[in-house]
Nucleic acid binder design. Structure first.
Lengths: 295, 295
DNA sequence: CCATGAGTATCAGTATTGCTGATACTCGAT
DNA sequence: ATCGAGTATCAGCAATACTGATACTCATGG
């Protein structure tokens, strides 16, 4: 079970095809076929159905491990590399869209003015990619948001050692069309919204899974899935009545045709956490210290 | 960076020697040397000092990843294997010594009487080994104890997906010699004990790190490290005045020469959690269901 | 300061592995 | 039944990953 073969396996699953995976990896189709065959004899179980190519039950099990394993391998390499490469004057931040609240953007801008020669970059992406970016060294820091009980930490995909601490916390709000019957309410209970029509926008808003966990409910069904990180686009859909979503209360002020109603029950907050490697490199380390001191 | 080389690296660190690691792995010393050299050129960093053989800073970094990676590789294999191998009539439980509280043992005995033909085994071991046993399929279930705030989950080494839920919770008590000046107290505060002499017995009692986390203190220093899982041996040392340790309050009743004083501040409990794979195999699944229903 | 020995690095040789390219096979669609 | 897109198999070659022999290095003791 070597990582090369696992990488091939993942690629085959992603491409639903041996030949396409081969092309993507720069192998011949023959090599891919042999990789899979080798894995299957090694694990003594068929991992893929052929035609259509799809993971079997055993394949699904393997997948659950293969992706984190490969990610962690990259993380290990990046972690060692961080000792050598001192990224002077450059700061890359990966960031989920909801993490750009007034408080966090202010902190970033302040860090830039404190070190004006700093070449900073902000990449907006989904939660998984943000974590991945920090682990593999593509980013120095990540800002990730989510909705949880006030004392709980954000649930993060576990694929390596990362340090996290909260940098800002706001009330969580439901986003409704301004014309919605509930739009005028001063506050709402999450349980009353479990049966509403939601938009599942895992990379642009709070994933519905986090709402379910907070409300301890099986509700929050959705017919519409929104892929991407653009909050404005999501808000247009909400305004048009395609479904509901959530956001930090203050972040919703600039969205047209949208009403943001705070959630008061259960006790839940929108929190942004800063993620960084255990030993961040300068200048990221300084920013981390500054933010931590501000807490 | 293939797993074989990582395994060699870990072995070399564990044995503090290339040749000893080679013997342990069934390689020649030459092969081990080449493995390490290959890793070092690949990562472009020296990983080990020679003579004495010890990990460098980069090596320490790699180690943090290497062990979990190797464990997870085994976990992946075990997880796939669980689909095939149905362990009929056998139930292996890995268990930390402190997890054998009245409540949990009662549950185990009850499970045995409910299924009398069941060939059960209980292996007492440390926390890491217990988690490892479940991940690699050596055990079907694990019972792990620890001391945490009432609402927190136990901190577990993260090397794969495991489901955990609490099965019993008791007050946490300090174990003191019966002759100790504090032995007569009805209750104690953890902060008052931070400067006491402790025994670090990570596999037999609550690790001092968990106490530090709960007390949010840097205290709990120790001069004596106790390796092993035998609680009675530990209690003899405590009775002789070698240092303090902690345990579940009711578990300490049968220890001679020992006084157990409950801790009332901070709010902290001794909790035992049941660990199992995401999809446990029968008959472990039935036991899990029973215990879960009892919650 | 040199001799010694325990331990690591290097090197050549060989067995094995891992890839390619060609070709045979399989299954769904027409 | 035929075709075609896609997967499996096979031989051959290049690269790799071991072993065994030997050179090297460093701490120790005389």
């Amino acid at each position: 079970m070597d990582p090369q073969q696992l990488r091939t396996f993942v690629a085959v699953v992603d491409h639903c095809s041996f030949s396409a995976a081969a092309q993507a990896l720069g192998y011949t189709q023959s090599a891919v076929s042999q990789h899979i065959a080798s894995l299957e004899t090694d694990l003594e179980a068929p991992l893929l159905t052929r035609r259509p190519v799809a993971p079997t039950q055993a394949g699904e099990r393997l997948l659950e491990h293969a992706r984190p394993l490969l990610l962690r391998l990259d993380a290990a390499r990046a972690d060692v590399a961080r000792l050598r490469k001192v990224r002077r004057g450059r700061l890359a931040v990966a960031c989920t869209p909801g993490a750009l609240t007034p408080a966090t953007t202010l902190a970033l801008v302040r860090a830039r003015t404190a070190a004006p020669q700093l070449k900073a970059s902000v990449q907006v992406c989904g939660r998984t990619e943000a974590v991945q970016a920090v682990l593999t060294g593509a980013a120095d820091l990540a800002l990730v948001d989510g909705a949880v009980a006030p004392s709980d930490p954000l649930p993060l995909p576990d694929a390596g050692p990362l340090t996290a601490f909260p940098v800002s916390e706001e009330p969580l709000a439901v986003l409704l069309p301004a014309t919605h019957p509930l739009a005028g309410r001063p506050a709402l209970r999450l349980a009353d919204l479990a049966v509403a029509r939601w938009i599942d926008a895992p990379d642009a808003a709070v994933p519905l899974g986090q709402l379910r966990a907070a409300a301890q409910s099986d509700g929050f069904g959705h017919q519409l899935t929104y892929t991407g990180t653009d909050i404005r686009g999501l808000s247009v859909l909400v305004a048009a009545g395609a479904g509901l979503t959530t956001a930090a209360l203050p972040a919703a002020g600039d969205l047209l045709g949208i009403a943001a109603v705070p959630i008061i029950e259960p006790r839940i907050v929108h929190r942004t956490e800063l993620l960084h490697p255990r030993t961040p490199t300068t200048p990221a380390a300084e920013l981390v210290d500054t933010l931590r001191a501000a807490q």
